[in-house]
Design a protein around this nucleic acid. Structure first.
Length: 190
DNA sequence: TAGGCCATCTGGTCCT
DNA sequence: AGGACCAGATGGCCTA
């Protein structure tokens, strides 16, 4: 039953060398495999002794690579957390929260730029607050994604951030930029 | 204790 | 053939 060799030795190689599996964003997986085929076969791939050893070796190498890959992914996520506004309570954003928050944040910034462009002379000297924005930037203090709601008034233009966002009213406050204060959620980004 | 999040293992698929 | 990517499964940890 249990997962085979959980072989601890693993964790030592964080050597992120060659990084980035770069190869860019190749649109893999273009082929949409039939749903049914998604069933995984968990059966023992039986084999004779020698091939088993070879397979085990291959598996261990693949596990290492996969571990590294996930570590790289987590590093990237950490880097993303690093450039996002920090939360006062300094609790670490979860992965999904990080992605959603980044999504909202980018949207808010681009919206700020857009508005600044519209009212050019004024905007330069004035900080635009998220609450000034038309689109919903809704931040929920709780973690439950359910608490999200679209308060989008007036289908304002640009691409909606598909998110929930900010403490509704609560004008002023420490949040000239409310995004700093709470977590935001996107019920379903896409 | 249930539920959420996470790390890891694993096998399948695609690409080089 | 081997590596990258992906998604399902599993188990551990933590919190309400």
């Amino acid at each position: 039953m249990d997962p085979v060799y959980s072989d601890s030795s693993s964790c030592d190689l964080f050597t992120n060398t060659d990084d980035e599996d770069s190869r860019g964003a190749s649109p893999r997986r273009a082929s949409s495999q039939p749903e049914q085929q998604k069933k995984r076969r968990r059966g023992r791939a039986r084999g004779d002794g020698t091939t088993q050893v070879v397979k085990k070796n291959r598996r261990m190498k693949a596990n290492d690579r996969e571990r590294n890959r996930m570590h790289n992914l987590n590093d990237a996520l950490d880097a993303l957390r690093g450039v996002l506004p920090a939360f006062p309570d300094e609790t670490k954003l979860t992965k999904i929260e990080t992605l959603r928050f980044a999504h909202n944040y980018i949207w808010a910034l681009s919206e700020t730029i857009r508005i600044a462009d519209l009212q050019a002379p004024l905007a330069l000297s004035e900080t635009i607050r998220i609450s000034d924005l038309q689109a919903p930037v809704l931040l929920s203090p709780s973690r439950s994604p359910d608490s999200c709601s679209w308060s989008s008034s007036g289908s304002s233009s640009s691409s909606s951030p598909a998110h929930c966002a900010s403490s509704p009213a609560s004008p002023g406050g420490p949040e000239d930029f409310p995004l700093f204060g709470f977590r935001s959620f996107v019920p379903g980004i896409y």
